[in-house]
Amino acid sequence: VHHSAMSPEEFISRIMEAEPPEIYLMEDMNKPFTESSMMMSLTNLADKELVLMISWAKKIPGFVELSLADQIHLLKCCWLEILMLGLMWRSVDHPGKLIFSPDFKLNREEGQCVEGIMEIFDMLLAATSRFRELKLQREEYVCLKAMILLNSYLCTNSPETAEELESRNKLLRLLDSVIDALVWAISKLGLTTQQQTLRLGHLTMLLSHIRHVSNKGMDHLSTMKRKNVVLVYDLLLEMLDANTT
């Protein structure tokens, strides 16, 4: 079934099935952390998660119908936002903690050992608190994640060729499906029409904060790489370079 013919319920169940499995860092933690060891753990985990993120994106109905160039650009634009939203979701029931993985949990104070990371931890914790206040539901979370992916590149790209225009139109229709799905998920919560509208507004406004934290995080990681605190390699290097060069 094409996504345009799917009900919002079907669409959500497809993106719920696309959710990546839980991932473990599987490293022996040498506590206390050093600046380098914490950055290495964070980047090792990010690199593993990125591989799963590509498979996740491909399972979002309609994503692989976009041009390959669009698929690449979208993922390169949003990967850190997606990682951060996943982190917020895992941390939502653990105030004051960031649950990077089941075997890698950090307190705000542990950010002290990496220069400049506490500011980012605080922004992540603040956005997580907002999601906690809003009692974010799993259905809403998966919709927001798909929205981040599909929205990430919309305002930086003007299609020129017929192929680009076609892919752009597909992208816009796909965003329609995701918005419909989020609206449907909110409608299931037993709220008044006005409360539903407000909730949609509050949830989508949080995405601008996530973009902001992601930009801060991208600058931080590229600084850490430049200062040789951490060795960035493989897929993570490719994704970081796309944002910094």
């Binding site: 390959l68 698929q71 993922l75 897929l235 490719e238 994704m239």
Partner: peptide, 13 residues
């Protein structure tokens, strides 16, 4: 071929 391109173009298992 980049790793991203490679992952995007491989068929799902």
């Amino acid at each position: 071929h980049t790793k991203l391109l490679q992952l995007l173009t491989t068929k799902p298992e």
